[in-house]
Nucleic acid binder design. Structure first.
Lengths: 197, 197
DNA sequence: TCGCTGACAGATATTGAAATCTGTCAGCGA
DNA sequence: TCGCTGACAGATTTCAATATCTGTCAGCGA
């Protein structure tokens, strides 16, 4: 080719995100991606076996990027109750920001996630592991009292579905939302804390 | 008319449910409902100002019927913790049963609820009131310790969204679901209970 | 040899004309 | 008078012809 630039999966993913941003999920085609890279669409299939796998790879990148700050929070030091609260609030904020900043892009992400089931499942499991990490820390610190850490982490994740699952995104902008989040977090924290009399 | 039967809103709703059951939401038309009742479709508009209002009325009936056992549970006597657990499990079971028994009909209900926003909102508020009732009873019994009953009832409702909101219906059949429900209920109960040492 | 091309078959999406539906209303018949 | 009818306008949906896309592969050129 005229350029020294080789066609890598990375470059294809980059171009795919651009195309998605430009055309939206419903309109974006493999031909568009190929055109953006100035190659034939057959070449794209040399690196990704199907459009679905390309979609999944984009979704994975996306979710991993969004997850990064949460990983850091889970790995940090400090009192577990504060960290759990911070972690949950950050998780909510990340999602909420994505909706507000670029609703159309969020819709794309939502649809993308709809069928990238495996990728999303792995992402959720990672989230639960992060919560579990904080809960364990809390037990070690004598702040939490928990029978089954893994199950409780899952329960905390489940209990907060309303504020991180895209299906409920349209509720996030409502004015009563923040106080409802406060009440939910307070309830959950009380559920894991040791009793102080 | 040939029959002594008059055309009442009730009869129209009955017929509408039949038509929905037979044709599904996308195919059911006001003309179909009128045909089922052997009247012109103009007559239906004499009782319901629009197709949307008819849809809403059907949704309301539906939700009210589903809600009945929960009202009874909230009004019952007995220890509040057990009642709250029973209430939540019943709420989940009602929904789950609807999905399993007749998935197509559930899809219809889901789509119906999608745009019957006001009706659904009222229904949710009623649910929260029922939870609040049980929480209040629990405080009176010395079993619960709660700052803000209304807010906590809302938090319990929000925390269980995953198991009563139709958006998550497809997850309800998974084998790990029951144990996750157990963990969630345990967490929430611990969050409202007084500390026993 | 090895990555890319471009033509191809079958699947999917688009489009616009025709059919159907929603909502209205003047008038009929009891 | 009062509820129902049936024809109507405009909105929506259907359907089939057409266009585009996905995924494959034989062959080209470096």
């Amino acid at each position: 080719m005229n350029e020294a630039v080789v066609l890598t999966p990375e470059r294809i993913l980059e171009a795919t995100e651009d195309v998605l941003r430009r055309y939206g999920l419903t309109k974006a085609t493999v031909v568009d991606v190929a055109r953006a890279l100035d190659v034939s669409h057959g070449s794209v299939y040399r690196h990704f076996p199907s459009k679905a796998s390309l979609r999944d790879a984009v979704a994975k990148r996306w979710l991993d990027r969004a997850n990064e700050p949460l990983c850091k929070l889970a790995a940090a030091d400090g009192p577990a109750p504060e960290r759990l609260e911070k972690w949950l609030r950050t998780a909510f904020t990340i999602k909420q920001k994505k909706v507000c900043d670029d609703p159309e892009m969020f819709a794309t992400y939502l649809a993308l996630a709809q069928d990238a089931r495996e990728v999303v499942e792995a992402y959720k499991d990672k989230q639960v592991d992060l919560i579990a990490k904080i809960l364990s820390d809390g037990i070690a610190q004598g702040e939490f009292e928990i029978d089954n850490v893994k199950a409780t982490a899952r329960a905390v994740f489940d209990a907060t579905v309303r504020y991180h699952h895209p299906a409920h995104a349209e509720e996030w902008a409502k004015p009563e939302c923040p106080s409802r989040i406060d009440a939910l977090i307070a309830l959950l924290l009380r559920g894991v804390r040791v009793c102080k009399h």
